[in-house]
Design a protein around this nucleic acid. Structure first.
Length: 421
RNA sequence: GCCGGGGUAGCCGAGCCAGGUAAGGCGAUAGACUCGAGAUCUAUUGUUCUCUGAACACAUGGGUUCGAAUCCCAUCCCCGGCGCCA
């Protein structure tokens, strides 16, 4: 959410940002907000005056009664006031609701370095494409031939985009999680298991509202949603709190399953691990002072690139453009690993600085000499196991259909290879 | 799920029975004292606004009343006991 003061005092900045995003609809909102805000403030001062009068008269009544004098004249006056206030408040609330509707839907202000347009700009490449002297198989074929994954039976009992992991692939999924958690602990991040469900209030604090339809599973009859990522509970954790500056930055890594509807992606990657309704993810979170957030954004990216480098995967880092960045982030990097079968780079990590956008919606502040200020929130994938599994299966496959384990994972898997048994 | 007790500021906590301006302590910040620190003393320390002033705020939402932290109703959460339970 944007600061209403920013729109009052510097509407041009907000407008130029929306132009960068080519969001012509929301451009028109700003004038509307400014008008509504002005009207709302006028009403606010009028109702404040009425309340002042009511408070004053009520106090006078108390004094008169204590002195044993007649207060009926004052009581008559005071009894009239609440009706007037109520009428004005209705008008105010209608305006407030409209303002909030707009405010909640306006996107974050972008960082200057975000590329304008529809082209993400690559900023780094690590490693090289693996060379195969045979025709590489898709991870789906590899998993089915090795009998370490079952998509058909998962579809039978749960639907498309679900899967069973079996045998050594189950172990590999676990190994990835444990390796990533240990990696983050060594770098000073606290591991945290969050609740897998969250209520709407907390959810609206962390997410783009469109996500409710696109990604969220709702529990029927309850105010609960299955989490789409541990970023959500970990960021919402300090909802309505004022943090001690001594406790900042909060650096942690979330460990959880993630649940996503993947609405609007029918027909795309319906089989396999790439786009699924449920997967495991280790997530990095930083909650910090505003002046530190750009530094931590680079730190989160470095953690993720270092991790993927140790997994011996070839990847590139891209700076996400205004056309793809979404509502919440001020700047976002993706890591895309090379997928030899698809013959393209595909997203495995998303690393965002949300500045104070989530903090304002969550009312999450820290104490300073000049008063309470909103914190900045950042998040980045450390490893999403299913996408990493796709990359590992396809990049580490051998001519006989077996999979060699990346060296750093062998300590955790207990085996060097997955082969037909 | 049942019974009982609770939810007040960054934290602790009085006020609630009996409606009439939100005590006090800790912590934090500033100043005094000090070479400096500590101790001590003084001031400030919920939010917002069109800021010499005002409004709002005692878990959340309603209600009663001229006036609600206080009385009534509903909901959420916490603690204790009982029950159930992987």
């Amino acid at each position: 959410m944007l600061d209403i003061n920013l729109i009052r005092n510097n509407p041009d900045l907000v407008l130029s940002d929306l132009k960068k995003r080519n969001d012509t609809e929301k451009l028109l909102w700003i004038d509307d907000i400014l008008t509504l805000d002005k009207e709302w403030r006028t009403l606010k001062s009028k109702t404040d005056e009425l309340r002042h009068r009511r408070n004053k008269v009520a106090l006078e009544i108390g004094i008169l009664k204590k002195e044993g004098k007649d207060a009926s004249e004052k009581i008559k006056e005071a009894a009239e006031i609440p009706k007037k206030i109520e009428k004005m408040e209705k008008e105010m609330n209608a305006k407030r609701e409209k303002i909030d509707y707009y405010l909640k839907r306006l996107p974050n202000i972008l960082h200057d370095s975000v590329p304008v347009g529809d082209e993400n700009s690559p900023i780094k490449v690590v490693g090289e494409k693996p060379q195969f002297d045979f025709e590489p198989k898709s991870h789906i074929d590899l998993a089915e031939n090795l009998d370490i994954g079952d998509f058909e039976r998962a579809a039978k009992i749960a639907g498309a985009r679900f899967f069973f992991l079996k045998g050594k692939l189950t172990v590999l999924d676990f190994a990835l999680q444990y390796y990533a958690m240990e990696f983050m602990i060594k770098r000073g991040y606290e591991p945290i298991y969050p609740p897998y469900m969250m209520n709407r209030k907390a959810y609206e604090g962390v997410t783009d509202l469109r996500d409710f339809e696109d990604v969220m599973y709702k529990i029927e009859g309850e105010d609960l949603y299955l989490i789409a990522t541990s970023e959500h509970p970990l960021t919402a954790m300090y909802l309505d709190e004022i943090l001690n500056p001594k406790d900042l930055p909060k650096k942690c890594c979330g460990i959880s399953a993630c649940f996503r509807k993947e609405a609007g992606t029918h027909g795309r990657e319906t089989k396999g691990f790439f786009r699924v309704h449920q997967f495991n993810k280790i997530e990095q979170i930083v909650i910090c002072k505003p002046e530190e957030s750009w530094e931590y954004h680079e730190e989160l990216l470095k953690n993720a690139t270092d991790l993927f480098e140790t997994l011996e995967l070839h990847f590139r880092v891209v700076n996400i453009c205004t056309g793809d960045i979404g509502t919440v982030a001020a700047k976002k990097y993706d890591i895309e690993t090379w997928m030899p079968v698809q013959n393209e780079y595909r997203e495995v990590v998303s690393c965002s600085n949300c500045t104070d956008y989530q903090a304002r919606r969550l009312n999450m502040r820290y104490r300073t000499k000049e008063g309470n200020k909103f914190v900045h929130t950042l998040n980045s994938t450390c490893i999403a196991t299913t996408r990493a599994l796709v990359a590992i299966l396809e990049n580490f496959q051998n001519a006989d259909g077996s999979i060699t384990m990346p060296k750093v994972l062998r300590k955790y898997t207990g085996f060097e290879k997955i082969e037909k048994e």
